[in-house]
Simulated assay, not measured.
Amino acid sequence: MIAVIADDLTGAAELGGIGLAYGLEVELAMSVNPQSKADLLVISTDARSVSEPEAVRKMTEVSRVLRKMKPVLIYKKIDSVLRGHILAETRAQLKVLGLTKALLVPANPALGRTLVDGQYFVHGKPLHQTHFAPDPEFPVTDSDVLKRFKTTNEPVFVRNHSDALPDRGVVFGNVATLPDLQAWVERIDHQTLPGGGSGFFTALLDSRFPPKREMETPVALGNTRLYVCGSAFKESVDWVKKAVNSGYSVQYMPKDMMQPGALESNRWATEVVSSLQQRKPVIMAIDPVWVANSSAIQLRTVMAKTVRDVLNRTPVDELIIEGGSTASAVLREIGVTRLAPVQELATGVVRSKAIEKPALYITVKPGSYRWPPELELF
């Protein structure tokens, strides 16, 4: 078994989809099932959406249980642009797993994301000048990795794959080209916790399994589709606006539900249910005009509770969720803790069967990734 510990659901699903392409049996879960027989067990901790102490607690607990299962490899999936409580989590995991160093390779040239001389770029643009910069929970103010993770507690390094590596600490690997990823795979030893993005994970699987299979033609999706858009990325916001202009049913969160302490209301759920019963795709979204004065936690909590109310009142075949934190909140509310990935519709966009709700398929998509043709509306 190979085990992955991810800090958000979309990242977990992305690696699960990669495993499918290698012919692996994949289980995606919110907690560890010690009896799992999967070839690839992917655990989504949702650690990116909680406080640092809570993130450390979650990572410690999951790492401890997985260590007892003795997988052949444990991989730490982090955000490809380094959002989250990465250092604190990694140090806690090294302690639990009895390892001396971590090798984190977040960049993926296939997606235009590179780390060169410790500077992170997205399609050649410094990270702090991209659309990732104004992230509401983890804003990016510098593209220099060492400056972003400046610490006085334990050493942090940036190295090329040809450099000598330290015996202890956290190493971020420079990556400019795809061959750099494979070169980093060869630097992993028995005292190293490997981690990073999807590109490094793909290189790891390439070193262990036959070549990836060609993507199969997706089966026909269900008729009743509910899109839940919780991402604040400009591309996502623009996609929702385009849906409005194209005549699709877009149900924005009512303004009075965005404020802390807002009373529970079924009004939004009623509007969504009414639209779904017309057998047309429905999009739930947050109007960007009102987002600035609202808490991210409040918004995704209200979104998740409303999705739960909708599913309790009308059948939905396909639940399509954009944004990892939103996806985790929704799954908790609807009582889904285990997913069986069945299709990688596109890079990072994975469709899964909900184990606890057999009639429901759930697709999750990172906010910064493109919609695949199967889910695009126009």
Rank of each mutant, 00 (worst) to 15 (best):
I5N: 01
A21P: 00
Y22F: 15
E25H: 09
D39Q: 12
D46P: 01
A55I: 06
R57E: 14
R67P: 03
K70L: 13
D79V: 03
L103E: 02
L103S: 02
L104Y: 08
P106A: 09
N108H: 12
N108A: 02
L111S: 13
T114A: 03
G124D: 10
L127H: 04
H128R: 07
H128K: 08
P134K: 06
E137I: 15
D142C: 13
L146T: 02
K150M: 09
T151C: 10
E154M: 08
F157Y: 15
V158D: 02
R159Y: 05
L165V: 05
D167F: 06
G169F: 13
W184E: 01
R187C: 06
I188Y: 11
D189W: 07
P194S: 12
G196P: 08
S198P: 02
F201Q: 10
T202G: 09
T202E: 13
L204I: 11
L204S: 02
L204D: 01
D206S: 12
D206K: 15
D206Q: 14
S207L: 07
S207E: 10
R208M: 15
P210L: 09
K212T: 15
M215G: 07
A220W: 06
T224G: 00
R225G: 00
V228R: 01
V228P: 05
A232V: 09
A232K: 03
Y248F: 15
Q251C: 15
Y252D: 13
Q259L: 14
Q259K: 15
E264F: 12
S265C: 07
V273H: 00
Q277I: 03
K280N: 08
K280G: 09
P281L: 03
P288N: 05
S294D: 07
R300D: 06
T301A: 14
T301L: 05
K305F: 07
V307G: 04
R313H: 02
V316Y: 04
E318I: 02
E318L: 07
L319E: 03
G323T: 00
G324Q: 02
G324I: 03
T326P: 03
I334H: 02
V336E: 04
V336S: 04
L339C: 11
A340R: 14
P341V: 07
P341Y: 03
L345P: 02
E356M: 05
P358F: 12
A359R: 08
Y361E: 13
Y361C: 09
P366Y: 01
F378W: 06
